[in-house]
Each structure stands twice: as C-alpha cells, then as structure tokens.
Design a protein around this nucleic acid. Structure first.
Lengths: 120, 120
DNA sequence: TTGACATATTCCTATATCGGCATGTAATGT
DNA sequence: ACATTACATGCCGATATAGGAATATGTCAA
C-alpha cells in the first residue's frame, strides 16, 4: 500500500509546506487565486491543486465573485489539529519545569562556591 | 517531484494516523516496542519503521534497557505544531463569537414575539 | 557456544502524490 | 461572436512512501 491520501484528513493536507503557507495567507480574509499566486510565488496550476485539496477537507471556503473565486481559510477546521497537540501540552510544560528547576539548583551551587571563595 | 519526506519535518511525520497513536501511547512515559505492538495491534516491523521515522525527526527519545529499547514521546518536539495551529485560534474564536451573537439575537427576537403574544 | 527473546532492516510491490506543461472552461468586455 | 481574463483539469514522469514477508542484528541466560 502507499501513503495516506491528503484528501481524507486535515493532518495530511497540512503536511505540505505550501498548503500551510496558503492557509496562513488566507486566514485574514478572502483572497482570489491570483493573489496567492502573486504573493507566494507559486505556479497558478499548483495553487489550484492545493486549493482543491484544502477545499475537500474543509480547510478553506470558496465563493464566486465575477470571474474570480475568493478563498478563505476555515479556521474552525484547524481546531482538531490544535486539540491533538494539546494532548502533549502538560508533558512539555512538565519538561520545561524540570529544566528550570535544574537551572536554579545549578545557580545556587555556583553562588555557594563563590561565597566560599569570598570568605577565604 | 514527489511528496515531501516524512523524515524531514514533524508535520509529515505526524500525518500518519498510526504514528499519532504511537506518540499518544508513548506520551505518558517510556515503553518497550513490544508494548506498542501489543497495545496498538500493529505488526512489529511496522512499529519499528514508524519509530525510526519518529526518532529521526526527534519526536521520540530512545534508551536501551537490556534487550529491549524504551521509547518515549518528546513532547517538546510537538510544540512547533501547536504553535502553528495557534496562529488560527483568534480566527476560530472570532467565528464562534459571531455564531454566539447571532444565536442570542435570534433568542431575543423569539422572546419579543412571545411577549407580544402574551399581551394580545 | 547455543538458544531464546526483542527489535531492526531489507526486499518487494502498489500507489498517492507533486511539479511542469498544455489545455479546458467559465465569466466579462467590446 | 470574439478576445481576454481567471481558474481548473488532464497527462506525464519522478519519487517517497507503507505494508508484508523474510531475514538480520543484538542481548541475555544456561
């Protein structure tokens, strides 16, 4: 079997760096395809293909406006990713806490040594 | 050109559902490979391959213990993903806010109508 | 050393991409 | 109707997988 399809879940869709760039660009509000092409310096067909993937998984919304199509990031669709990473928050916070504790203990030891030096 | 390598960045590494399952399983603490195999019902070679990918991008740490190898999720390596999703938080919160506002406006209209009914 | 246990690697095949190029389609202006 | 603008799609080639089966490596125990 091959790799998982990008069209089936947001985790795969977001794995592409260019698609992440597009999502960030479209987060602030609607933009026509041409603006993405110009701003990110990608080929137009490439942008269309990425938008197709993003649209299929619901990460962007589309609206016709004359001859252009306006795309916008659907931020709510990113929440599941956010929530998945949240699972690990308590663990990395715990790690940071321990790093901090060790640093403080080390600083105390250094201070103790220097105090001894000052005495002698 | 083909798809981006899973070994080069955490976004791709995490795109695989089984790898996400492994990361969650190993978040709480060290576990030998056999425990992953037993718990997630995957083939042993498959688990080894996934662990190899996760290890290359720094998402898991490994330690020898006798004839087994203990793996553990490196939660800190997930922070970049968390921070990327965090970019969109304000937008989805804004969306939720507008949904809430509309719901309240609707509720007020309903109440007004019912008050009128009570009067007549 | 031999054997058993735990994990890793290799070989193979099928497939889902991704980029580039050319072409198709839809909406607008004259 | 015709040309133009704005996107989308189809085809091609290259490649990075993921799974399955078999095998290799490494470690401990007797």
């Amino acid at each position: 079997m091959a790799r998982a399809a990008t069209t089936s879940d947001p985790f795969n869709a977001v794995a592409e760096p260019r698609r992440r760039a597009i999502l960030v660009f479209l987060a602030g509000g609607e933009q026509p395809v041409g603006a993405i092409v110009a701003s990110l310096g990608l080929e137009q067909p490439s942008v269309s293909k990425h938008l197709r993937v993003l649209h299929k998984v619901g990460l962007v919304r589309m609206r016709r406006h004359g001859r252009q199509k306006l795309y916008e990031t659907n931020a709510a669709a990113i929440r599941p990713l956010h929530e998945w990473t949240e699972i690990f928050r308590k663990y990395w916070e715990h790690q940071l806490h321990r790093v901090k504790e060790r640093a403080e203990a080390q600083a105390n030891r250094v201070r103790a040594v220097e105090t001894e030096r000052g005495k002698s």
